[in-house]
Amino acid sequence: MHSTIQLNVNGDRRTAGIPAHYTLLETLRYALGLTGSKQGCDKGDCGACTVLLDGAPILSCITPAWEAEGREVRTVEGIAMPGELHALQHAFEVTGGAQCGFCTPGVLMSAYALLSTNGDPSLDDVRDALSGNLCRCTGYTKIYEAVLMAAQALKRDGGGRDPVPGDRDAAVVPAERAAGE
């Protein structure tokens, strides 16, 4: 049975017809064509499918699509500006924080959520925030370096606590506000 779902993804209102049992990840990838979020384990272990729901990182592969209705969804497609990489993406390129790149969209979203609430994270803060994202390539060191580098770059550019240039209207809810509230 198909039903119509309305989602707010990266600031756009999107409508799609989906089978009622679709996950948020399936909806993003197969109904809306947003294939940035990856289907890794597809059962909540790896973090490759991480997206933000009202600013808090969640695993879209085990989130029923309906749980995202009426909430702000942000995916990796929604962090860069047209023609301009986000500071995090730039830092990943500089440090070599992405190798095969499969974990990267999820890692970026966890890091993005961290930088929205903590503009000057310590290495421990970064490790903690990324502890739900598995990477089989990099050994994590370069990923941590990239996130710390991006935090410094944003601070320098006066980006402050909002890592998205030009996105100051979009409410970024602190991670304290858990998904579902």
Binding site: G47, A56, T63, S110, A178, G180
Partner: peptide, 11 residues
């Protein structure tokens, strides 16, 4: 419990 994403979701 688990990792940060799962703690945001799990009750």
């Amino acid at each position: 419990v688990a990792g940060p994403q799962l703690r945001n979701m799990g009750t």
